[in-house]
Write a protein that binds this DNA or RNA. Structure first.
Lengths: 252, 252
DNA sequence: CGGCAAATTGACTCCACTCAAAGGAGGTGG
DNA sequence: CCACCTCCTTTGAGTGGAGTCAATTTGCCG
C-alpha cells in the first residue's frame, strides 16, 4: 500500500507548478478524500506547495488578507489569537492533512495566526479557485462542508465545561487518535507543542499541565520525558476523559 | 437544475409549496443575502416552512438523521449537547436568520439537539438540495462557507479563557448587536432563555449569573426584571467585555 | 389560594491560579 | 570545550474566583 508515496522534492530550481496529490502519502487523510483520479488532477492544478518551514515560521498572521487555505503537509502547527493585553490564546494544533484558516473565510482577513511548531510544510490553495472547483465537483464541495462542520463540532466539544484532568485526557485521546490514523503509534508520540501551548489551548495554567502530568505519571497512566509521551493505561485515561472521577469505575 | 426538487407539503391540505424569501422580513439577514431575484426564486423552491412552534418543542434531537439545515424564521432557539451524566451543555442561542445544525453535516446525524425557547418558527432546507443549488450559484455557495466560517470564529471567541464577568458582558453585547440588526433596541431586550441556560452556555453556575446581574444592577450598568433587560452603561459593559478590570479604566 | 419551578441570596469549600524558586535543556560566544 | 544565558519545566506554598449546598423569595398557573 502506498509505495513511492514520498518522492518529495523541494526548494531548488525544479518547477513545482503541479503537485501530485495522487502521489502524496497523505492520501485519504487530506482534501482529495473521495475524489476520483480525474478530479484529483483538477485539484492538483490549484495546489501550491511550500518549501519546508522551520519551527517558529508563520504561515499567516492575524490581519493578513485571506486568500488561501492552508493544508498541513508535514509537521505540526498551532493557530492562536492574541488579545488586547498581548496574551496568546491557542486555538488549535494541526497535523498533516488538517486545514488551517477556516475562521478567516467570512472576513476576508485572518483573525488568527498560524506558526510551525516543528520542521513542517504546507500546501496552499486559493480559496476562490477551490470554491470554483467545488462547484463542479460535488464530492469536493461536500468534503469542504464536511471539514468545516467537523471543526465546528470539535470546537463545541473543546468549549465544554470540563475539569482540568478531563480536558487533558481529552486532548491526549484526540492526539492519539489523530497520530494513529496517520500511521504512528497510538500509545507513544511526541508532543510538538510546549506545556505552555497545551495549557493555553486547554485554558489552564502551565503549572497545572505539569502537575497533571506528574500525577498521571505517578498513577501509572503514562510515561513522559521531555516531549516524548507514552500512554500506559488508555482505559483509565478514557474514563477520565468521559468525566467520571477518573478512579477507574464509579458504578451508577 | 432541480426545479421541482422539493415541493414539500405538510400535514394539512393547504398547498404551501413555495415560500417567498423575497417577501420575508428577514431579507438580508438570512440565507438569500446577496442573491439576485432569480437566484432567490431558485432558493425558494427548496425552502420548507414550518408551522409555528411552541416553547419546548424540538426541531431536532441528537441522533436524528441529518437531512436539513434549519433557519430560524421567528423566535429563539437553543442548541445543546447532553453528556453521559445527562447534563446539558448549551452550545448556542439562535435568533431569526441564524442557522442551526451545522455541526451535523459531517456525520450525517445530529450531535446536538435544538429546542424552541419561545413561540417560534423555522425554515428547513434539504442540505443536499442546497448544496446542489449552491453549485450553480456562486454567491450562495460563498454565503454558506461564510456562515460556517463565522460560526467557527464565534466558537473560537466563546471558547476563550475569560472571567465570569467578561463572559457575561460578551454575551450581552452579542445579543444586543444581534437584536439591533434585527430592528430591535440595542439597549433593551428580552432574554428568551433562563438563567440556567445562560449559565450553561457560559460555563458558569446559575447562581453566578444571578450574582453578576445583581452586582451589575447595583453598579448601575443595567436594569433587569424577570427576563426584561436594559443596558444603562454600554461603555462600562464594553470595558468589562474587553477583559480589563471592568472598573471603568485602567491606564496602560 | 396552593403548589411548583425559577431565581436570588448567603455561607462555605475547593479547584485551579498566582507567586516564587529551583532545576534542566539548548544555544551562543569566548 | 566550557561558561553563561535564556527559556522551559517542575515543584511548593498560599490565595481567590467560582462552585456547591442550602434556605428563602418570587413569579406563574391551575
Amino acid at each position: 500500500m502506498k509505495s513511492s508515496a514520498t518522492v518529495l522534492r523541494f526548494a531548488d530550481s525544479t518547477a513545482r507548478a503541479k503537485i501530485a496529490c495522487s502521489r502524496c502519502s497523505l492520501g485519504e487523510l487530506c482534501l482529495p478524500r473521495g475524489l476520483c483520479a480525474q478530479d484529483i488532477g483538477a485539484l492538483e492544478d490549484i495546489v501550491d506547495r511550500s518549501n519546508p518551514m522551520q519551527a517558529g515560521e508563520h504561515v499567516f498572521r492575524a490581519g493578513d488578507p485571506f486568500e488561501t487555505i492552508t493544508v498541513v503537509r508535514a509537521g505540526c502547527f498551532k493557530s492562536y489569537l492574541v488579545n488586547e493585553e498581548g496574551q496568546e490564546q491557542v486555538l488549535d494544533f494541526a497535523l498533516p492533512g488538517e486545514i488551517l484558516g477556516l475562521d478567516a473565510i467570512h472576513r476576508g482577513a485572518h483573525v488568527s495566526s498560524c506558526v510551525a511548531l516543528d520542521t513542517s510544510a504546507v500546501c496552499s490553495l486559493s480559496f476562490d479557485s477551490l470554491s470554483e472547483l467545488a462547484r463542479g465537483i460535488p464530492a469536493l464541495q461536500s468534503e469542504l462542508f464536511s471539514i468545516m462542520s467537523h471543526r465546528i463540532a470539535d470546537l463545541e466539544t473543546v468549549c465544554g465545561d470540563h475539569s482540568a484532568d478531563q480536558r487533558f485526557a481529552l486532548f491526549l485521546e484526540s492526539l492519539s487518535q489523530r497520530y494513529s490514523r496517520r500511521g504512528y503509534s497510538t500509545q507513544e508520540f511526541t508532543l510538538a507543542m510546549s506545556r505552555r501551548d497545551i495549557a493555553s489551548y486547554l485554558r489552564l495554567a502551565t503549572e497545572t499541565i505539569s502537575r497533571i502530568l506528574a500525577r498521571m505519571k505517578e498513577e501509572g497512566l503514562l510515561e513522559v520525558s521531555r516531549n516524548r509521551l507514552r500512554i500506559l493505561d488508555a482505559d483509565a485515561l478514557h474514563a477520565i476523559a468521559l468525566g467520571g472521577s477518573g478512579k477507574v469505575s464509579e458504578s451508577a
